[in-house]
Amino acid sequence: MFRRLPDHKGDLVTFTFDGTPLMASKGDTVAAALLAAGVTRFRTTPVSGADRGPYCMMGVCFECLVTIDGRGNRQACLTTIEEGMRVETQHGAATYPTGISA
């Protein structure tokens, strides 16, 4: 869906998406890094389970919510990619470990 222009300079950063190792350019947002890697589905909705991907890229639509390093509901378009980041598809509503055992 997107490709990187050859004159774009930036050190490479490695991260994973759903366990698959991918490369990004330093300074990318998580959303830009995923789009550049060919990822179109970022999450499924909590209402119908439909696939969604980024829409606005500026923090207003909340369509690009992903799980980053175990924490859900992160806006991929407002988060800068970092070396070793573990990014995952968010399935439905985010769940949080409560630390409370039944």
Binding site: R3, R4, L5, G10, D28, T29, A32, L35, A36
Partner: peptide
């Protein structure tokens, strides 16, 4: 924004 920030087209 993708073009400005990440050189993506």
């Amino acid at each position: 924004i993708a073009l400005k920030t990440a050189g993506l087209v």
